[in-house]
Design a binder for these strands. Sequence first.
DNA 1: TCCGACAAAAATATCGAAATAAGATTGACA
DNA 2: TGTCAATCTTATTTCGATATTTTTGTCGGA
Lengths: 237, 237
Amino acid sequence: MTSSDKTLADRTYRQLRGDIVNGRLAAGSKLKLEGLAQDYAVGMSPLREALARLMGDLLVVSEGQRGFWVAPLSLDELDDVSRVRALIETEALNAAIRNGDAQWEREVTAAFEALAAVEEHLPHTSDALPPEQLEVWEARNRAFHAALVSAAGSPMLIKLRALLYQQSERYRRVSLNVSRGWRNVHDEHRAIYDATMQRNALRACRMTELHLSRTAEEVRKAMAALSRDDDAPGDKA
Amino acid sequence: MTSSDKTLADRTYRQLRGDIVNGRLAAGSKLKLEGLAQDYAVGMSPLREALARLMGDLLVVSEGQRGFWVAPLSLDELDDVSRVRALIETEALNAAIRNGDAQWEREVTAAFEALAAVEEHLPHTSDALPPEQLEVWEARNRAFHAALVSAAGSPMLIKLRALLYQQSERYRRVSLNVSRGWRNVHDEHRAIYDATMQRNALRACRMTELHLSRTAEEVRKAMAALSRDDDAPGDKA
DNA sequence: TCCGACAAAAATATCGAAATAAGATTGACA
DNA sequence: TGTCAATCTTATTTCGATATTTTTGTCGGA
């Protein structure tokens, strides 16, 4: 699609990843190989290769001779991911603030302003957001957070951060489907941005932790609500 | 081999991973698919599936339509991996010391004593170690470090730690091939073990950092020596 | 002679489809 | 009601076809 789709397996990997992260493929659902091969119009070989790579991203799990599933979501894992993400993200941001040069500042500013342009007229009370606008926000949010840490000078930190961001995104998408409006997430982004530009690493990391924990809290509530909804209408045997 | 080899791709994944980590497949070398398929006695599909999974472990890199390579090693990456590993490992150890119960203590003790049994009569000056004994030490070292953090209560931390340990192991194996003997690594392990058993998290983490940075330093020297050797005898065009 | 562009050939990576084998399901029988 | 076997579904793998890259060889110009 966008970048390096030299091979069919590559393209399928990206498509599948997107469909899992944004929830089009439900968490925990069985991935029927034949069906997927048809949907994505590929043969078994590229499909299996894509699935194997997604296992490394912790988006797919497999069991011996029984097939593949979309990795399940759970409240416990949400807490786990959120905590580790905070650790990695603050470490990376700290390093970036230490190492970042003028070019980095420009990139962060550009990413922030692009994000701000979307966030400033977000519905505060509405319960639904046009999917297209949601995709734009997701992309710019991802870009902003990526830009912040891009000067960390540590490929490994950046790689792990990307992995954890993706995990978080899956959870966040769940809550966006049931959320009763947007909290003033823009203020939080601005606080992180300002502290970063002032090279106030301590404050920037604190604001980041706050931002992450608030997001996690929101997801937690949404998931709890969802599981209540799941239990109530369903009957026991 | 050992655990879940339900499928050919699984077995091949493990074999390849082992051969890369212990250096039987040289860093940076091209992985010729046909050759590998013969060596491991599998077809293309399971082989490619294994390689795709190894990409997720950062042990293999691939390029578009041009094939696979063993991920290269570099001094920069050694520093990067070492730093991030220290971050993750101390975080996990800290949590484990907070959460670990009596069962955990027993497991750590057992792992430590098994390791000690090998380390106590390690050659202090010898320059070569029988490969078989080296494998035993590697296994017990891995088990000891894994046991320490096993009670961290965070699957994600443990997963990332395992990834980084594996990266470090690759580098360590390089240095073991050229090392002029063993430093008193056993004292370092004992210091970590003692502090852990005393539930002295601060000291345990400090000792861990020291242990990791000393190991990294040793590897750094070995790699520098190797690259000198590589340059000197070789001729320019 | 030396180099560079170009074209053919070889090597190799990628992919799809059919064969195989393992697991799940159904139904008969005890 | 539980067990076993036959059947069906589905994952896994092999194999062969296709597409791409790399190498080799040839020619023409400096």
